[in-house]
Simulated assay, not measured.
Amino acid sequence: MALTNPWLSGPAPTTKLLHDRLSERILNLLSSQNMCVLATAGPDGPLATPVRYYHLDFEVMFTASPRSPKMRNLAADPRVSVGIFAPLVGQASSRGAQLFGRAQILTPDSNEFANYWEAFRWQSDHVERGNSLAEPPLGPLVVVTPNRIVYTEHWLRREGYAPRQFWHPKPTDTTTI
């Protein structure tokens, strides 16, 4: 039988990528996508919501209506999981990340708001909705800081690496702020 990608057959390698190489691959994924699925927990159970995001280093951020179910859930329990993935064509193209961490809800009067807001590209939403660029939105900004990332990329098998890799911040890593 002809195999399109023979390196996908057989047992998966178990070799781990060096932290810097894994970090680079994760940042590439975060930079090349703009949609994620945010998972929160609330009184009615789990909630998975598609959200357009931007990122600053390994942190992802988005805005939402303060009255939305996801914001109510985040106010009660800031623990989240975020799934980000590239379009799947076949096993060889399988690439995604699960970020596990805490969400922080920032308002314009929060000390950290301005630092993140500079990286948030709200202008395209405003143009699409016909709003003035002279009046930025005033809603909350949600920042998810991961304490663990599970990265999956089956192309890594081709190079002899495990297709599932586990990222943690280095002890010397600090958040953007």
Rank of each mutant, 00 (worst) to 15 (best):
E112I: 02
R102S: 14
A114P: 02
D57F: 05
P87H: 04
L47D: 12
N131I: 01
R67P: 02
I84H: 00
F62S: 04
V89R: 07
A134V: 01
Q123F: 06
E135V: 13
A75M: 08
P87V: 08
P136Y: 08
R121L: 12
P46F: 10
H126M: 15
L74N: 01
P66S: 15
S68V: 11
H55A: 13
V127A: 13
T49Y: 11
A48T: 14
R148N: 09
Q104G: 01
R121S: 09
Y53F: 15
P46S: 06
Y53C: 07
L133R: 08
Q98H: 12
N147I: 08
P87A: 13
H126T: 08
Q104N: 09
A97Y: 12
P136T: 01
P69I: 05
F120L: 09
G101S: 05
A114S: 14
S65D: 15
R72L: 11
A76F: 03
V144E: 00
V80S: 00
P46M: 12
A76P: 01
T63I: 14
N131M: 07
E128M: 14
Q123T: 04
G130Y: 09
D77Y: 01
N111Q: 15
P50A: 09
I84E: 00
V127G: 04
R79I: 02
P66I: 14
M61C: 04
P137I: 00
S94L: 15
A92Y: 01
G130T: 09
F120C: 05
V60D: 01
A97C: 14
G45H: 03
V142Q: 02
E135I: 09
A119W: 08
N131Y: 07
T49W: 06
R79N: 03
V142E: 00
A114N: 10
P78E: 04
P136C: 05
L138F: 09
L56R: 09
L56C: 13
V80E: 01
P87M: 06
E135M: 05
R102I: 10
E112C: 03
D125G: 12
A48E: 03
A114K: 11
V51G: 02
R121C: 05
A92G: 00
M61D: 01
